[in-house]
Write a protein that binds this DNA or RNA. Structure first.
Lengths: 207, 207, 207, 207
DNA sequence: AATGAATGAGAGTTCATTCAT
DNA sequence: CATGAATGAACTCTCATTCAT
C-alpha cells in the first residue's frame, strides 16, 4: 500500500537532481561545482537541468533543505520523547552522525555552503538550524535542572559543542566510507558524557 | 638606492598578499574568491598580484601554509614539554582556538579549502596536518599509559575529536568577533576532560 | 465526429496564435520575444505552438501579413474610388491610423520587425508595401495633374511623408490607449494639406 | 591647439565600442545583436568588450546617450537664438536629419531600442527627450502668439509631428546612403510650413 | 490537439592569466 | 614594481525546437 500520493515523474526526477547537486557541491564546493557536473551525474544534458531548477542557487537551496529537513524533524521527536537524558543524547548523536551516511552529502553541503545563499534563503534555513540548537539546548536545560549535568556546564555551550563535534565527525564519515558509524556514535556519546580523563577532580595538579 | 639583496620589502608585501588572500578565501571560499578581490584588499591592481603569486592556486597553498605552520610548530613545543597531561591539553586547546583569532582566517581556509589544492600540494600539507594529529595522539598515548585516561578512550578518536571540536569552535570564533576565546578555552578543555554529565562514571573499571 | 474538411476551428485558433504573437512581438521585439510568452498569452503550452507555426520566423511572417493585408486592400479601394483628392487623403489617414487601434499591434510589428525576416519572406511583403506606396503616389500624381498640389511638391516624397507621419503617430497610438484617433486624423490631414504656417504661400507661382 | 584635455586611450576605445554597438544594434536590434558582433566590429575579442562595458545593457544606454546628447544640445541653441520662426524650423529639421547621417546609427537606436532599457535608465533618457520636445513646442508657441501659425494648429501636435516626420525620414536616411539629406531638409520644411495642397481653403468641398 | 520532457546551440558574463610598457 | 589592456576558456542560463505519448 503506497503512501497517499505517489510522487509524479517530475518530482522523482527533481529529487534525483537535488541529490546529484548535493554530491557535486560536496565534492567541489558550491562555486567550484558546475551545472554540467550535476547534469552528468543525472545522465541528462546541462541545459535540461533548468527544467528542474530555476538557477544554480535554487539547487543549493534545495540541497540545504534536503540536508536539514528530517534532521530537524528527528530532533523534534527526540526532544518530545520522555526518555531519560542519556538516551536522548545517544539518540541525538545517532541521528546526527547517521544523517551523514544516509543523506548523501546534503547535510555536509548545508554546513559548509549555506553561507553562499542569498540573504532571504538563508534566513529561511536559519530558522530550522536555530530550532535544532534550541531543542538540543532545551534537553540540556532539563537535565541541568535534574542535576544530571556538572554545575560548570553551560547549556548553550554544550549544545553547540555537540553539534560541532558531530559535524566534525560527519565530515570524516562522508569522506571515508569505511568508518563505522555505530562505533563512532558510542565513542562520541561517551566522550560527551564523561570526557576523556579518569578520576573526577576538575583541576587536579599533580607533582 | 635599493639593491636586489634587500628582500625585506618584497617579503613584507608578499605576506600582505597572503593575508589578503586568506581573508578573501575565508569570505568567499576559494572558488568564489576573485584575484581582483585580493588585489583590492591590498590596494593594488589585479595584474600586479602575479608579482607575488604564480597563480591563484599558489596563493591558496601559501595561505594554507601560513595557517598551519606555527600551528604545528606550537604543537611540537607542547608535545616536547614535560608538563603534566592536563596542562598540555589546555595548551593545545589554547593554541588551537587562539590561532583562529590571530591568523587572519588562514587556519579556517586551511580547514575548508585545502581540498581544492592539487594532489602534490595537498600531500605537502597533509604531512604537516598528520604530524599535528600524531603529536596530539602521542600525548594521549602517554597519558593512557599513565592511567590518566578512562580505559574506554581510543587515542586516535580522542585526537580527532579534540581537533574537530576546536575547529568547530574556531569557525564560530572567526565569524563572531565578540566571542571570548579565553572562556571558550576553559569550557572546551573542561568538556574534553570530564564530559558533560555529573557523577559516577559508569565504565570506570580500572586495574 | 469532426472531419478533416472542417478547418474552421483550426483556423480560428491559428488566428489567435498570430494575434498573440503580434502582441508579444510588439512588446518585446522579435528577438526579445519568446515562444513561451506567445503560448502563455494563448493559454497553451510552449510546445503546442508548433501545431500552428513551423517556426518563430513563420509566426513573424504571419503577423506581418496580418498587419498589411487589409491595410493594402483598403488602399486599393481608396485609390479606385472616384472621390475628390482631399477625401481620399482623409480616407488614407483614417485607414492608416485606425489600423493601429484595430489590428492588435500587427501593423507596428510589420513596420519595426519585418527586416528580421528572411530575404524571400521580405520580398513577398515588400511587394505589398510597395503597392501601398505606389497607390498613394498615384493619388498624388492625379492630384498634381489637376493642379491641386503646390508645384514644389514631389509625389514620391509626399507619399513617403504621409506614410512616415502616420507610422510615427501609430507608434504613439499603440503605446497610449487614451489617444483620440479621430482627432488625430483631422489634425494630420490638416497638416498634410495646409502645413503649419499661416498666410501667403511663398512659392506659389502657378501657370 | 587640441581641446583642454585629450581623451585618454581608454576613452577613445570606449567611444569606438559605443559606435560599434550602435551599428550592431541598428542592424539587428538590441536583442538580436550579439556582443560578439560588436567586438568583431572593433577588432577585439568578445570578452574584452567587458573592459569597456559592464553589460550589454550599459552599452545600449551609452549608445542612446550618444544618440541624443548633442541632438538636444543643438536644439537648445536653436531655441535660444533670436532668428525668425521659419529659420528655426529649418534649423531644427536640418539638425534632426543630419544627425542621422553623422551619428552613425545611434539616434536610430535611441528611437527604436530605448524601450528595452531598465526603468531607471529610461527615465534618465526621457528627461532629455522631453526637453527636446518642449523646446520645440516652445518655438511653436512663440510663433503662434505672433500669429505665424494657422489657428487650427495645436503646438503639442505640431512638435510631435515634426519629430515623427523627421524620424521616419531618418530611418530611410540610415538605410539608404544615397539619399540627399540637403534636398530632404528643404522638402520636409516646405511640407511642414505649407502642406501639400495648393490654395488656402481648409475644408473645401468641390462639386 | 496538446503536452511533458528533453535537447543543443548560443547567449552574456566572469575571471585567471599574460605581457608590453 | 606596477599597470592597462587584452585574452580565451569556462560558466550559467535561455530558448527555439523536437518528439513520444
Amino acid at each position: 500500500m503506497p503512501t497517499s500520493r505517489d510522487p509524479t515523474r517530475y518530482e522523482q526526477q527533481r529529487l534525483e537532481a537535488i541529490k546529484a547537486a548535493a554530491a557535486e557541491f560536496a565534492e567541489h564546493g558550491f562555486h567550484g561545482a558546475s551545472t554540467a557536473g550535476i547534469a552528468r551525474r543525472m545522465g541528462i544534458k546541462q541545459g535540461s537541468l533548468y527544467y528542474y531548477f530555476k538557477s544554480k542557487d535554487e539547487a543549493l537551496f534545495e540541497v540545504c533543505m534536503l540536508g536539514i529537513r528530517d534532521y530537524v524533524r528527528r530532533m523534534e521527536v527526540i526532544a518530545a520523547s520522555d526518555q531519560p537524558f542519556e538516551s536522548r543524547l545517544l539518540a541525538t548523536v545517532t541521528s546526527h552522525l547517521s544523517s551523514y551516511r544516509e543523506k548523501n552529502e546534503a547535510l555536509k553541503v548545508y554546513n559548509t555552503e549555506r553561507l553562499y545563499l542569498s540573504e532571504e534563503e538563508r534566513t529561511d534555513l536559519k530558522r530550522q538550524g536555530s530550532r535544532y540548537r534550541q531543542l538540543l539546548e532545551g534537553i540540556f536545560e532539563e537535565a541541568a535542572e535534574m542535576g544530571l549535568l556538572r554545575p560548570s556546564v553551560d547549556c548553550h555551550f554544550a549544545a553547540l559543542s555537540v553539534i560541532g563535534l558531530c559535524n566534525a565527525w560527519g565530515e570524516l564519515i562522508v569522506r571515508d566510507p569505511e568508518l563505522n558509524v555505530f562505533d563512532l556514535v558510542q565513542q562520541c556519546t561517551d566522550l560527551l558524557q564523561h570526557g576523556l580523563c579518569a578520576g573526577r577532580q576538575p583541576t587536579q595538579h599533580r607533582g
